[in-house]
């Protein structure tokens, strides 16, 4: 149990989140992936705070508040999209021409 292990785990969680973000099409699934990323950051903060000191825990308190606000807005947007299209796939949004 040391800093290296914790950070490796945090990195892993973060990258799994990135993978989900890039590959999932369901909006809710994307939100879940975002949660993974935020959680990974929090874990890294706490680990650093434990092994090296510093304001890590404080940071996490704020990060939690931010996350909660993001979830609220994100879910509201998902529901809005769902009401509009009866479909929560994300890429309808990008009727991209380039």
């Amino acid at each position: 149990m040391n800093l290296t292990h914790c950070l490796l785990l945090a990195s892993f969680l973060f990258c799994v989140g990135v993978y989900g973000l890039l590959t999932r099409r369901q909006a809710v699934a994307v939100l879940l992936a975002l949660e993974l990323m935020m959680n990974a950051a929090n874990l890294a903060f706490v680990a650093f705070a434990h092994f090296r000191g510093g304001p890590g825990q404080l940071f996490v308190v704020f990060a939690l508040a931010i996350t909660v606000a993001e979830v609220a807005i994100g879910l509201a947007l998902v529901m809005l999209l769902y009401r509009r299209h009866d479909d929560t796939a994300l890429d309808r949004a990008s009727e991209t021409q380039g």
């Binding site: 975002l34 950051a41 929090n42 903060f45």
Partner: peptide, 15 residues
């Protein structure tokens, strides 16, 4: 996502 990216990066830098 960019907030997540920034936060994770900050975790490393601040840590």
């Amino acid at each position: 996502a960019s907030s997540g990216l920034t936060l994770f990066g900050l975790a490393l830098v601040v840590g």
